[in-house]
Amino acid sequence: MQHSYIDKYAGLDSFLHGLDPRAKVIVSFIFIFAVVLSNPTAYLSFALYGLALLILLAVSKVPSSFVFKKTLIVIPFVALVALSIPFMKGKDGLALFTGILIKSYLSIFCMTMLTSTTKFPRLLKAMERMKVPSIFIMIMSFMYRYLFVLIDEFHRMQRARDSRSLGRVGRWDTVKVLSNIIGVLFVRSYERAERVYLSMCSRGFNGEIKTLD
C-alpha cells in the first residue's frame, strides 16, 4: 500500500543516524523545553533554533521535502486550537498567537528530525533503557505497529467506495460515506484489539509486561 512511514528515512547513514538514540531523545526534549519556555516575542532566538534545525536537516541527508511536508501537517491543528488567543483581552494576542505557531512548528520539526533519523524500535529500546514506564512503551509500540495497518484498511475501504461510486458523488455524499468508513474502521480496530489481546494471552501474557534485558 502507498503511504510513507514515519521513520521512512531512518535507515540512512549519516552522523545523526549513527548517534546513540538516548542522546537524541534527551537533546530533543531539552530543545523542546527551551523552545516552549522562551518568550513568545523572542524572534531572534526562534531564528537561531530554526537555523540549528536546518543545519541538522542538512547533515542528516533526509530529503527536506519529506520533513517539511510532515511538519506542515500539524500546523492547521495548532492554528485551530490557538484561534481564540488573538481575541484575548489585556494582552497582545496576535504576538502570542504567532509565538505559539512558531514554537509548535519548531517542536514538531525537532520531533520529526528525531523520528526520521532513528528507527522506531530503537527509539523504543532507548526509552526502555531510560526507564520510561513499560506501559507507555507498549502503547507506543502498538501505535507504531497498527497505525499503518489501520491506514491500509482505510485506503482499501476508500478504494472499494470509489470503485462503486462511478465518480459521480456530491460533496455531501462524500462526507456521509466518509463518516461511515470511520465508524466501520472504529469497530474493526476494536475487534482487532480483541484478537491481538487473545494472541498475546496465547503466548503467555498475563497482564504483566516483561522485557528482555
Binding site: 482487532r192 494472541s199 498475546m200 496465547s202
Partner: peptide, 16 residues
C-alpha cells in the same frame, strides 16, 4: 499449546 491465529497482523503485534 502453540496457537497461531489466521490473520498474521493479529499474531505479529510487536515492532520487530
Amino acid at each position: 499449546v502453540g496457537l497461531v491465529f489466521q490473520d498474521p497482523d493479529d499474531q505479529l503485534f510487536m515492532p520487530t
